[in-house]
Design a protein around this nucleic acid. Structure first.
Lengths: 249, 249
DNA sequence: CAGTGGTCTAGACCACGTT
DNA sequence: ACGTGGTCTAGACCACTGA
């Protein structure tokens, strides 16, 4: 209990005390020992149980609140939440990495590239003003000899003027933007569509073949940066999203 | 600076000090004022700037580390990260809520329900033993008069024996399970497929119509609970995943 | 080896919601 | 009114790691 002794606790190689508390509470929730609606011990009780200060307990519980496992009610206590929506982390990687992780050789091929005024539909999509101008890029990503993905991208020239000088002959716009523009938010829309004739041509599939389409809008501080539509051919491609509350970083 | 005066700060209705620090630092990162790689001020410097204790600064920065905006290096400082993979939170709601949030009347209709031994394919899918038995349920979710989603579900009877006594005539298995079984992890796989003839019949669409398929495996403490395949017809349905680092809860 | 972040304490006052 | 969580302090020691 004395201040001098407690500080030596990290020597024991327990990762950290607040972390241990977090994991033990999490374990009881996930095992069902503390079911949804159960009131977990008050912070001062955990303080006694773990022989630590309230700040330490509070840190652990706060983390669990952020992860949605617990909700707090003042004066009443902290409760295990009722699961309502499954919330999964969907990682969307650079396409090159996606292909290479399949053990296939990656190739990128730019098809078209032009700067043009935003059409009405674009302005709606990206919330742009009347005079906005866009860079429009279409490109193919290959896995081996097979087309892996068709990329159709619009970039707001006002937000990223350097785009004017970039042909995207050799580098994919996604990777280029990623290293250049800080993005603050993104929205993904995922759906299934039948390939239209243009898509079918690019991807070397029959028109009408089901494709997985991922559309992503990215903005930074209220300004739309880019809109990209990735079309994956056929029934082969899967997006995988894992939810694993067990081990945080 | 005196202890007694500082505690009155919440009166001013600033949400909280660590929150203010977080937002200001975040703002400088997202605006590009502090670009990727930039070393942000040391914690002790922020301590001086905000006239607060190091714990408060530390809390704000720790939050930003968790969100992936900052990485810390001991002895060196804390740096704005280089964005690498877009990581989005995909919320998968209860289907009833999904339909009702569209303003449409929801209806559920169970089609088939049986208990049977696991086939080889099932055992592979759900990592089950030889003698495992499953409940197999197929059901339709309607939005108004239109089929909204076809649900094909397997439930591990060993993990959830109460399923034997539940017909799922009136309640959807997803909602039933959600309120009963704590789940510890889930994996989603999302892909586009053409409707086979069975699916087409259930969903009242032409065979071959592109459908969005979400497959989810859920387990709890190493035991597989359930596998569900949700098939959404046509090109109408979209999964939306938002990434919004701007404003936490 | 020196300086940063990582963790922790033993208090404190306040806001808020239940009673 | 009262008890909970929300926030904050002014210290402290340690681990890690870059110079």
């Amino acid at each position: 209990m004395s201040t001098e002794e407690d500080k030596t606790r990290p020597d024991t190689r327990e990762p950290s005390l607040h972390r241990r508390i977090l994991e033990e509470v999490e374990g009881k929730i996930l095992s069902g020992e503390w079911p949804p609606g159960h009131r977990i011990p008050f912070e001062y009780e955990l303080t006694e149980q773990y022989q630590c200060s309230r700040m330490t307990v509070n840190k652990a519980i706060t983390d669990l609140v952020k992860r949605g496992l617990i909700e707090r009610r003042r004066k009443s206590g902290s409760y295990v939440t009722h699961p309502h929506a499954q919330s999964a982390v969907l990682e969307i990687h650079d396409i090159r990495l996606e292909v290479e992780s399949l053990g296939l050789p990656y190739r990128y091929e730019r098809r078209t590239r032009l700067d043009r005024p935003a059409k009405a539909a674009d302005r709606r999509l990206m919330e742009l003003g009347e005079s906005a101008r866009l860079a429009e890029i279409s490109a193919l990503h290959f896995a081996g000899a097979q087309p892996f993905c068709l990329e159709d991208r619009l970039i707001n020239l006002a937000a990223v003027p350097e785009v004017r000088d970039e042909s995207f002959d050799a580098i994919a716009p996604g990777a280029w933007l990623m290293s250049r523009v800080p993005w603050s938010a993104a929205e993904h829309r995922i759906r299934a569509v039948g390939a239209d004739s243009r898509t079918a041509g690019f991807l070397a599939i029959a028109p009408g073949t089901p494709c997985l389409v991922v559309e992503r809008r990215t903005w930074s501080g209220g300004v739309y940066i880019t809109h990209v539509r990735l079309t994956y051919p056929g029934e082969k491609h899967e997006l995988v999203a894992e939810f694993a509350p067990t081990h945080p970083k």
